[in-house]
């Protein structure tokens, strides 16, 4: 509406005369309100992070004396070095890598294969299969934990895979449950994305004599890179941030991922919130790195599927 009135008066004189006025017009109440709203939303989202950052820079003694909502006292990085050493963060970063990276790669690999079949062929069970995969994803984790745990403690594993001799309390078991739980969502996203890839491409490949495997690996999969990158970002965040599976299915404290290490800084009663704030800041970094490294693909991956229907 605003745009129409501005561009709808086409004489050159008018345009020149209204040039300074145009700026004023932009500051209409609706626009001012929009910006106020955006700024307010931005502040609401960022405030907790900034507050945590601010707290993490202050020693506990100062905040105990003046309260957390205060200015003054000392500011230093002492909490960061303490958190890094006391919580043994390098060990837990390693555990998180052992769990997250294989889980992520296997999930994307399996999901892309299922998605390929569901999207490129019209078998009768396709819809049913997609429904089952998506439905499984909707199931709350807490609802299945008891039977799952019973299964985990009865399934034997060779001792080189698991210290406990069972699926329970092993990295393998944790990776497995992440793969099982995340594959459904990935299949859903990838199959929708693969449907947008024109059929002619695979038809041409088939005419050239490409096998089913080759069509998947060399034709469709490379085209899915934006979607795979987007999923990789999301899945990395989810698996990395998981606390539930990690605490229930892993009993050995020193094998738990980074989220559990944060809890190791919480005492039975006493909690040094400044130290935890600092540790949380450190722990958030890998997610940010992955997001910024993949963000271009992330955004195009989300929109590519939308406009190519």
């Amino acid at each position: 509406m605003t745009a129409a009135t501005v561009t709808g008066s086409p004489t050159a004189a008018d345009a020149a005369a209204s040039a300074p006025g145009r700026r004023r017009r932009r500051l209409r109440p609706a626009r001012a309100f929009l910006h106020a709203f955006l700024i307010a939303t931005c502040v609401v989202w960022i405030a907790p992070v900034l507050y945590a950052l601010y707290t993490s820079l202050r020693p506990y003694a100062d905040t105990a004396k003046d309260g957390y909502v205060s200015v003054g006292g000392h500011y230093n990085l002492g909490n960061y070095t303490n958190a890094w050493n006391e919580a043994d963060l390098p060990l837990y970063f390693k555990n998180s890598a052992i769990i997250t990276i294989p889980a992520l790669l296997i999930t994307l690999w399996l999901a892309s294969m299922v998605a390929f079949v569901v999207a490129r062929h019209s078998f009768k069970f396709n819809l049913l299969m997609l429904m089952i995969f998506t439905a499984g994803n909707l199931l709350p984790q807490q609802a299945i934990i008891t039977p799952l745990y019973k299964l985990y403690i009865t399934i034997p594993l060779p001792s080189w895979l698991s210290d406990s001799g069972h699926l329970d309390d092993s990295f393998f078991g944790l990776i497995l449950i992440h793969v099982a739980f995340q594959t459904g969502f990935c299949v859903f996203v990838l199959s929708n994305f693969m449907r947008t890839v024109p059929n002619e491409i695979t038809e041409a490949a088939r005419v050239d004599g490409a096998s089913e495997w080759r069509q998947y690996r060399q034709v469709v999969l490379p085209l899915c890179r934006p979607a795979l990158a987007a999923l990789a970002t999301l899945e990395f965040t989810w698996i990395y941030n998981d606390f539930f599976w990690a605490t229930v299915l892993m009993q050995t404290g020193s094998n738990r991922p980074i989220t559990a290490a944060l809890n190791n800084l919480t005492g039975q009663f006493f909690t040094d919130n400044n130290l935890i704030a600092a540790a949380s800041m450190i722990v958030a970094i890998p997610t940010l790195v992955v997001f910024f490294a993949l963000q271009k693909q992330f955004v195009s991956g989300l929109t590519l599927g939308a406009n190519k229907g």
Binding site: D168, T247, G253, N263
Partner: peptide, 21 residues
Amino acid sequence: VNWVDHNTFQQNITTYLQGNP
């Protein structure tokens, strides 16, 4: 020693004792 944080240990005690304590 298997070091676990206090709250997690307490909340998981039942599964812990049934598993591989």
